[in-house]
Design a protein around this nucleic acid. Structure first.
Lengths: 170, 170
DNA sequence: CTTGGAAAGTCAACAAGGCTGACATAAAAT
DNA sequence: ATTTTATGTCAGCCTTGTTGACTTTCCAAG
């Protein structure tokens, strides 16, 4: 995965990190890393009869307990039909609780049950273990760069929406 | 996406970048960034009647012209039935050429046709544009860290296999 | 030279998880 | 009183992954 800069294609400035080779390498790294990044939770999910979509719901409901369906839809950016299919199963199976909103009774506030928290913790542990090893091996400065680049890859509007939905809570 | 380190959970050393919050943030960034990262080519592919799986084939065949089916299978890590479905269409449509190997006539050497190269270039341009903007905004040192962390996320065996298949050519 | 195994291709069936479109109900907002 | 919003649901389609079974071609080792 490591390749020397192409000789002779040197621009006048320090822009060697923007060569086609570097960009291609970044693109391929995203593909391979994302695949392995999802592999550990996928195995666990499979053993429990769930899929990656269920993982996402568990993650974000755990992340923001009391989240509404609409907020979850905005985060996941899928159709409500698609979300509903996995959410319904999680509610039926007793991993997610769906309660009528107090202020707005049309809304449903989602939380994890004890069982849901347990599975979420198991999935999270696996994913965090891989991330921790990677962070650890790469070092704090690399982690800083990793975050900066990934943030920039995200659409600006989506960046704002995520901040609104996940960070600042009214 | 930015959150302060939790107070009180400070280990004696400089391991603050390994806190649960930092790991969780890294995990979420992978999810959001990968999604937007694939969005541009997905739109183009859709307009041409292809999917993400076709993109991967075009990418790696372009990357290593003459690649065999087995090598491609090893890179993509899918079943041959799954690969064959998309590969067959690309060959039928005249984007990929499949030629009997010279040394080993059981093998098929895959290359892009002119049409295939054109679509690959279009897809690549879109993906590179996003990556270039991100790299540019984050700067060369961040890019270095980005690469280091992603490399570490990949399974070591897969890392070796990729190097063998994509870098060193006999 | 024969035979075993490797490379490629194919058929069938299934599952996950996206999508669209059409509707239904309850509750809030106007 | 009416319209809009939040949620849920049915039905059907598509892509892309899976397993399992089987064939053809061809290399390589006995």
């Amino acid at each position: 995965m490591t390749q020397p800069a192409r000789p002779g294609v040197r621009s006048g400035e320090q822009l060697l990190f923007l060569t086609d080779d570097q960009l291609r390498q970044g693109i391929e790294l995203m593909f391979f890393a994302y695949r392995d990044f999802t592999a550990d939770p996928d195995r666990i999910l499979d053993a429990h009869g769930y899929g990656r979509a269920h993982h996402r719901v568990l993650h974000f409901v755990n992340r923001r307990p009391g989240l509404t369906v609409n907020e979850l839809l905005a985060i996941l950016a899928v159709t409500k039909q698609s979300l509903n299919r996995v959410l319904r199963l999680l509610v039926e199976d007793g991993l997610v609780a769906s309660r009528v909103g107090r202020r707005d009774r049309r809304q449903r506030n989602l939380t994890l049950t004890e069982t849901g928290r347990a599975l979420e913790a198991e999935l999270s542990a696996a994913q965090q273990a891989r991330m921790r090893r990677a962070f650890s091996a790469a070092g704090p400065e690399a982690v800083q760069g990793f975050r900066q680049v990934l943030e920039q890859i995200i659409d600006p509007e989506m960046r704002g929406r995520i901040d609104r939905l996940l960070e600042r809570r009214e």
